Each structure stands twice: as C-alpha cells, then as structure tokens.
Amino acid sequence: MKVLLTGGSGFIASHCLKTLLASNHTVVTTVRCESKGERILELYPESFKGKLSYVVVPDISQEGAFDEAVISEPPFDAVIHTASPFHFRFQDPKELLDPAINGTKGILRAIKDKAHSVKRVVITSSFAAIVSTDEHPEVYNESQWNPVTYEEGIEDRSKTYRASKALAERAAWSFMEQEKPGFSLATICPPYVFGPPIHPPESQATLNTSNAYFAMLMHGGWKEKLPPTGTWLWVDVRDIALAHVRAIEVPEAGGKRFFITAGHFDMKDVADITKKRFPEYVDKLPTKLISDKPSPLYGFDNNRSKDILHLEYLPLENSVVDTIKFLQRHPL
C-alpha cells in the first residue's frame, strides 16, 4: 500500500513509520518543517529510498492544510492521521483544542475531495476520548465516550487534553455519518503510552510526556515520592504502531474504534521494575514504594484489538527496561 502518515516526527507516528516500512508499505509523511523531514530520512538507510518521502504541512489547524498533501502519484491507498499536540505547556487551551479538532476534520475533508483512491483512514484518538472523569464504569470498552464539552476544555485546563481528543474523534465519526465518503474509518484509543522513542531527544523539554516520567526518575525526581499514576492503564508504543498498521491492512477494522491497552499498572510497578533491573537507580527512588491504585479499580476490555487486529501485548517490564536503556544511550 501507499500510505500518507501525518506528524511523522511524533512519538507514536515515528513508530508507525518504522512499522509501515517493515511491512513493505510506501510512506509519505507530513512534517511541520523541512528540517524535521530531513531528520526522518537520515534515520533510514539507502535501501528505503523510493519507499519514504515527506511533505511539509506547517499548520494542521489551518483550513485546507492537507489539500496538497493528500495528492500523490501513484495515489494513496490509506491514511494514518496521528498529528495532534500532546503536552501540558500550552498558554491558551485552544492551542490543543483547535489543531486536534480542525486538523481531523480538515484531513477527512481533503481526502474525500481530493484523494478518491483512499479506502481506509486510521486516526489516533485516546483513552481520553473514552474515560469519564466523573464516574467510572465497572469495565471500559469502545462503546463509552468522555462527555466533556469544548467549553469545559476551555474553562478547565485539567480537561483540555481530554477534550481535544474526545471532540476530535467525535468530529471524525460525525463526518463519516454526514458525508458518507468513499473510505472507511478506524480509530485507535490508547491510555498511557510507554516505550523507547525513535528519535533521540534534543532536550528534556522535547521528550514526549510519558518518557519525561522516566527521565525524571533517572534524575532523582522520584526520590521524595512517586508521581501520581492518574490513569491506571498503559500500552507500549510499539503495540500502538502495530495497531495502526493492522487497522489499514485488516478489512474488518473499518468502522470500528479500538481500545488498545496492555492492562493495569501504577508508578510503583515502574519503580519496582527499575529497582530490579537497574540497581544504580535505587537511591533515586523512595525507600518505601506505595501503590496508588484505588480499590476497586475499573476493568478493561481489549478483546476487539486481539480478535480483529491480532495484537499480543508487550509486558510492562519490556517497556520500562527498553525506555531506560534508550535514555541511558541518549543522556540529557
């Protein structure tokens, strides 16, 4: 297949890119600037020449941002849309909300109008689009939606990120229902995403949110107490990448949301693995490790991801060990 991948330098997207190439797909990825595109090309050997290229899309929130990117010769068969900001350093909540919502609607519109060859679109959503902050069900699955509104996302910064993901995904499914385009849609909804990055971080500030926790641990930031877990579900980024790629390959994935999670965890689990596998960090952890898992804790149903996408999830220890080893090789 020929695949358009948006936001190719991102944490999840860079793993999607690697998995797509390993599966022998041809990939054009969008980047915000030429230097990011060149950096991506440098990561891959000459043998991938002709299988990998990039196109610059400076601002995904602008109207028509993807109009040229979706046009290709030969044309695209599928699109994986991962580009959406995920950080908590925003000044204005609209910095997260508008690019997520407008970028999603914009790329679907561009594909419908200008890329008639595309048969499958996969969008990176989040457990944030499923989880409720008010009342948890006994078991989470794909049928549930976070009821957060745009106004709540503006007024309450603790809800901004979740609103950006929930409203962007809702916008995507509304588009499919109203516009009835010639392609099918699948969405991928992960919770905490751990695992080693593809790109060496330029600085602590450029680390993605989940890996920043590991950097903080390694620099002694967990010494006084463990950080709060917040969401007690996780998945490895390599499994998320595989989910995206399988979702464009498997016919039965069309028209479905996928809740992608390996299971429960808390920061005590991360600390326990670190103590066992990296004794040099024992003195950077609290003497007494205390779990913050509530009891009872909501359950999860990830059977759809196993049955349709045939995922077999990596264990937490693999994710923790591989991430710390990566950060050791690329110290900040």
Rank of each mutant, 00 (worst) to 15 (best):
S143A: 14
N146P: 01
S125M: 04
K112Y: 03
I60D: 05
R109D: 15
P75E: 15
V70L: 13
V121C: 07
G64V: 06
E155H: 11
W145M: 10
E142T: 07
Y161D: 04
K159W: 14
E151T: 10
F76Q: 11
E142G: 05
D92Q: 07
G103Q: 10
K159H: 11
G103N: 03
E73P: 03
E152H: 10
K112N: 08
R89G: 00
H116T: 15
I111D: 06
W145R: 12
T104R: 04
D156L: 05
P93Q: 00
S132G: 03
G103E: 04
F66V: 01
P99C: 00
P74D: 12
V131A: 12
I80V: 04
A100L: 09
E135L: 07
S125H: 04
D134Y: 12
S132P: 05
G153L: 06
A128M: 00
F90H: 09
I71N: 11
A83E: 09
L97K: 04
N141E: 00
N141Y: 07
E155W: 00
G153V: 03
E135A: 06
P74C: 09
S72K: 05
V148P: 10
E135W: 01
I130E: 03
Y150E: 05
K112W: 04
S84N: 05
L97T: 08
E151A: 13
T104W: 01
E63W: 03
S72L: 12
Q62F: 01
R109L: 14
S72G: 05
H136G: 06
T124H: 06
Y161N: 03
E68T: 14
H116P: 13
A163M: 10
P99D: 05
D92C: 00
E142C: 08
A65H: 04
H136S: 14
I60L: 15
P74I: 12
K105S: 11
P75K: 13
H81W: 12
S158M: 13
V122W: 14
E155L: 08
S158K: 13
N141H: 09
T133Q: 15
D77E: 14
P147R: 13
E95T: 14
K114L: 08
P74T: 08
P137V: 00
A163T: 07
R89K: 12
I111L: 09
R162G: 09
A129I: 00
F76G: 11
Y140G: 10
V148I: 15
I60Y: 02
W145V: 09
G106L: 02
K112D: 10
V79W: 10
